[in-house]
Amino acid sequence: MILKGFKEKSIKKYLNKILSERKIYVDDSKVESLGVILNIDEVEDFELFRNLATFLRVRPNKFKIIAYSPTKSEKPNFWEVCFNSRDIGWYGSIKNIELQSFLDRPFDALISYYTSDEVELRLLTGLSKAQFKIGILQKDERLNDLIIKTNKEEFKVFKKEIFKYLTILNKLNNE
């Protein structure tokens, strides 16, 4: 139990270092690839995110979701990659190859759809190589470039707001 606390503290220290060195650069490049990080305990319907990707005109092969499960028990799911705290080591080292490939992929946009204050979720958002990060209201505002203040249950509002702001920022294809 004590080691778990030390491990979490080492991850938080690494996350603070990443966020303090983060350079924010928003350009008008179009959103053609989309990644989603979510907490499996907070989201019931996986298809909402597929529909969002289709709505934003992101092709299925350029869309990827990873889900975090805070409990060690496996749930039957349709997530592409599901991980838990065992996949993250001391000082934020990633032990899961699929998870590392997700983080290394330079998505045009990343959606962090979680409200829980899990250090693992925050670390993944911070480590992602995505150009533009979007999230719902979280404790650490340094994680995302665009924060949409909605409840996680109000997905329709979230979808409408994403479309509105990505249109304003000229990040959507008009084709």
Rank of each mutant, 00 (worst) to 15 (best):
A53R: 03
V43L: 12
F132L: 06
Y91P: 04
L166M: 10
I94V: 15
S33A: 05
E153H: 12
R122K: 11
N151L: 02
L137Q: 02
I40W: 03
I11F: 08
N84S: 11
D108A: 11
I37T: 05
Y113W: 08
E32I: 05
F63V: 04
I88F: 02
I24E: 09
S10P: 06
I162K: 02
N61A: 05
I18V: 15
E161R: 10
F6G: 02
L19Q: 03
K160L: 10
N173V: 14
N144Q: 11
N144P: 10
F78N: 12
D104H: 11
F46L: 00
S73V: 14
L123P: 09
E8W: 06
T54Y: 06
K129G: 11
E47C: 06
S73L: 06
K17E: 13
S20T: 08
L15F: 11
T167H: 08
N174M: 15
I66F: 06
E175M: 15
I88Q: 04
K12D: 06
F78M: 11
I136N: 00
E21S: 12
K133G: 04
S33K: 01
F49N: 00
N39K: 12
K171C: 07
K62T: 04
Y91W: 13
E161P: 08
K133R: 14
Y114N: 10
W90L: 12
T54E: 13
D28P: 01
S101A: 09
K164F: 14
V31E: 00
L121H: 09
K17P: 03
Y114H: 10
A67M: 09
G35L: 03
E175Y: 15
K152H: 11
F163T: 12
E8P: 02
L52S: 00
V58I: 12
G92S: 00
Q100C: 08
D27T: 06
R22M: 06
S69D: 02
V31F: 00
G126H: 09
K62P: 02
L121M: 03
L169C: 05
E175V: 12
E21Y: 02
E154D: 15
E47M: 14
L3C: 01
A67C: 05
Y114D: 04
I147R: 00
S116R: 13
Q100A: 10
G135H: 04
E118R: 04
K72T: 10
S101G: 07
A53L: 02
D41Q: 09
F107P: 11
I111N: 01
V58W: 01
R22L: 08
E44S: 15
N51D: 06
I168R: 14
Q131C: 07
S93E: 09
S29A: 11
F63K: 15
V58K: 03
D117T: 07
E161A: 07
E47V: 06
R142Q: 07
K4A: 08
G92T: 00
I148T: 00
F6Y: 10
R59F: 01
